[in-house]
Design a protein around this nucleic acid. Structure first.
Lengths: 114, 114
DNA sequence: TTGACATATGTCTGTATGGGAATATATTCC
DNA sequence: GGAATATATTCCCATACAGACATATGTCAA
């Protein structure tokens, strides 16, 4: 079997940095026409349209005809799955951060009581 | 340009479901030898070894020789980036959930005072 | 050393990519 | 209808996959 298509699911879709940039921009700016996205990301319009298709297929953006242009807006729902999956591992960072903090405090303590 | 290699970064690495399974398993079970992972995931050993290489390159797992076998353990640090990125969009789910809850309460209210 | 076991690597194949360039499709205005 | 603008699609190419299978490498034990 080959690598799964980028349209297979949200995890494959967000593997591409350009697509994460698009998502970030829509989150910041709200609904945005294609040309404005292309300008902001310095991306040729055809390349962007292809990325937008991938994002549409996995349901993380939706488009609305607005006169001559097409407004794309974020639908963050599919990103919830990513967040939830990544949250599973929170305890690992927390533990590591705690260890770092504890060590820092211990060292500081030693320096104060020589 | 072609699609970025799976080893390019953590986002590309976790696009593959098998590799997320490996990560999940190591998070649950702690350090585990290759054969046990292969058995648990019903994955041929060569296929698994290739996935493990990808995960090693992006730094999300590390291996330790343990007698004849090799123990793989999770290093969740790179997943922090994924979690942080996904956290950016938390407000969208929260807002949506709030809207759903408010609507439900309004409807319930209407039913109680007809 | 030889053999048994555990893991890694190489080869093959079909499939899919992301960008560049050209072109097709919509939509609005005259 | 025809021109102008906005967006989508098609064709091209180099690259890289994931799995099946065979084989190499590494490690221990006798």
């Amino acid at each position: 079997m080959a690598r799964a298509p980028t349209t297979a699911d949200i995890f494959n879709a967000i593997a591409e940095p350009r697509r994460r940039q698009v998502i970030d921009l829509l989150a910041r700016e709200g609904p945005t026409p294609v040309a404005a996205i292309a300008r902001a990301l310095s991306l040729p319009q055809p390349a962007l349209s292809k990325h937008l298709r991938v994002l549409r297929v996995v349901g993380v953006v939706a488009s609305e005809q607005r006169g001559q242009q097409r407004l794309y807006r974020l639908d963050a729902a599919p990103l919830h799955a990513v967040h939830e999956w990544a949250s599973t591992f929170e305890r690992f960072w927390t533990h590591r951060l705690e260890r770092i903090r504890e060590r820092a405090e211990r060292i500081a303590e030693e320096h104060h009581t020589p």
